[in-house]
């Protein structure tokens, strides 16, 4: 039995890699993931990845920040210890604006970034799950699961036709760091 776990099509040009994705899809080969050194625009449509909902998360966190700031200011200035400043009203709404705004921004950016880290499992010290070390430098890597896509020769020729500079049959999923 073939011990290959993943087939990697390694490209040095993003356009050729996109061609590779197209021809693999034509052949009905499912793509596990693609690793690139830079964002590739339009790739998520090709791979059928839905639009990120992170902006929605940012909006919700922003609303929470706004509410938190308003409640804090209202509690401290109006409810808990109203201070008489020249007989002016305690509820000085215009003066609430700057801090409400700052907390909206603070909560939405931190909330969104930490949601991003959480959803992609990014945290300090996480072992990098890298399939090819040059994928962060100058190589564009298409990874195909060899267990579910069994016609390995066809995949190879497909990738080669599209212009892959190298094709790897890896027995291990990740190039781990020992």
């Amino acid at each position: 039995m073939d011990s290959t776990k993943y087939i990697l099509g390694i490209f040095d040009d993003p356009d050729e890699m996109m061609k590779g994705i197209d021809s693999l899809k034509e052949k009905g080969v499912s793509i596990y993931d693609v690793f690139t050194p830079m964002p590739i625009h339009g790739i998520e449509n090709k791979l059928g990845i839905k639009e990120s909902r992170l902006p929605i998360a940012a909006f919700i966190f922003g609303c929470i920040g706004l509410t938190a700031a308003f409640c804090m200011l209202y509690y401290m200035l109006v409810y808990d210890w109203p201070i008489n400043i020249g007989g002016k009203p305690h509820f000085t709404a215009p003066n609430f604006v700057p801090i409400c705004f700052e907390w909206t921004v603070l909560f939405s950016s931190f909330g969104m970034v930490f949601t991003y880290f959480y959803s992609n499992h990014l945290f300090p010290g996480r072992t990098p799950r890298v399939m090819d070390l040059r994928a962060t430098n100058d190589r564009f890597v298409i990874a195909v699961n060899a267990k579910t896509n069994t016609q390995h020769d066809q995949i190879d020729s497909c990738l080669k036709e599209a212009g892959a500079v190298e094709i790897k049959h890896n027995d291990r999923k990740y190039v781990s760091y020992e």
């Binding site: 590739i40 990120s52 992170l54 909206t104 992609n120 499992h121 990014l122 300090p124 010290g125 996480r126």
Partner: peptide, 29 residues
């Protein structure tokens, strides 16, 4: 650098969300 990189691997979803985050952060910044 491995600790500092948070385990970044450049997969499609990492980049896609990265771009969404950059754009929204730019919008609020």
């Amino acid at each position: 650098y491995s600790v500092l990189s948070f385990g970044w691997n450049g997969s499609v979803k990492t980049w896609q969300r990265f771009e969404a985050v950059s754009l929204v952060l730019a919008g609020v910044a």
